[in-house]
């Protein structure tokens, strides 16, 4: 354990920079869409354990709203735009009407959230494509509202995912100070990680 799972710092810096570029473009798109400033936190690159991933959202059973995109092309992986129900509703209310209740998005609210996720995901990935010259194509956006762990576990369920750890590039954004963060989580597959590092001209591996 220990050393085997710590990241080479040069690799981590480079991947953080990717998170910066991707989420930066996505945040700009979101800011244009909502006509308001969006703040972005410093990206984090982590090897995260299967059970720890939902901690960033407040625990395994926390109710969250998530847009999921499967990424294919030269770089394969999964991408999530995920946030608390409250912050998802606030986001949707900015472009559509405010939603009643607390536990569920209306059909139109959920499709609005999916579209926001789609725009942000496409911006995120196209910025990475420009930077790396590698193809990354998002699937149609899929929306789910449920327990954080139940949704995020899908990142660990690709047939290629080996072991108990996954690499994640994590960037949080928020549009009002009192609002909780919305998170971009990009999980490149182990194979994609090698491709990515080679394209960035880094020797060695994760």
């Amino acid at each position: 354990m220990g050393d085997a799972y710590s990241l080479n710092s040069q690799v981590a810096d480079m991947l953080c920079e990717l998170g910066n570029i991707g989420a930066g473009h996505a945040a700009t798109a979101l800011s244009e869409l909502l006509q308001m400033p969006i703040a972005m936190r410093v990206p984090q690159v982590e090897l995260i354990q299967v059970d720890e991933i939902s901690a960033i959202l407040g625990g395994a059973e926390t109710l969250v709203a998530c847009v999921f995109l499967q990424v294919t092309g030269d770089i394969e992986g999964t991408m999530f735009f995920i946030q608390s129900m409250e912050s998802a509703k606030a986001l949707v209310a900015n472009i559509w009407t405010a939603e009643e209740g607390t536990d569920e998005l209306s059909e139109i609210g959920s499709s609005a959230l999916g579209e926001i996720g789609n725009i942000l995901g496409a911006n995120y990935l196209s910025a990475l494509m420009d930077f790396t010259q590698l193809r990354m194509l998002p699937s149609v956006p899929l929306v789910a509202v449920d327990m954080a762990q139940a949704i995020l576990s899908i990142a660990f369920q690709s047939e290629q995912a080996v072991g108990r750890y996954a690499l994640v590039i994590h960037t949080a954004v928020h549009h009002r100070e009192q609002q909780g963060d919305a998170h971009f989580l990009l999980f490149p597959t182990p194979f994609a990680q090698d491709v990515l590092l080679r394209a960035l001209g880094i020797e060695g591996s994760i």
Binding site: F68, Q70, T78, S139, L142, A144, I151, I154, Q157, S158
Partner: peptide, 14 residues
């Protein structure tokens, strides 16, 4: 199947 309407995505049909 956490994401409804996800025909064609193998990962989602796990």
């Amino acid at each position: 199947q956490m994401f409804a309407f996800s025909k064609g995505l193998d990962l989602v049909r796990i």
